[in-house]
């Protein structure tokens, strides 16, 4: 069965590039591109929501459905 991938929404104008989501994503899905975060490896996402939970800036949201 094919795994349903989430949609990771990054609100670039809110992202301050603090690295928190990059560092605490357990499967290293995210990376920094310049000063904002971007999705490097969506296939590895386990929808654990750690990035959304920890971002101080409301800049990353995981839509799992």
């Amino acid at each position: 069965m094919e795994k349903k991938l989430p949609n990771i929404e990054i609100i670039e104008k809110y992202c301050k590039g603090c690295h928190i989501c990059v560092e605490f994503c357990p499967t290293k899905v995210l990376e920094m591109k310049g000063f904002v975060v971007s999705v490097k490896n969506l296939e590895a996402c386990t929808k654990c929501m750690q990035c959304e939970l920890r971002c101080p800036d409301f800049a990353i949201r995981v839509h799992a459905e």
Binding site: K13, Y14, K16, P56
Partner: peptide, 14 residues
């Protein structure tokens, strides 16, 4: 009101 004024990584947002 967003983005808020707090610095990058400031815990107040959390």
């Amino acid at each position: 009101k967003l983005p808020h004024i707090w610095c990058p990584g400031c815990g107040h947002g959390i």
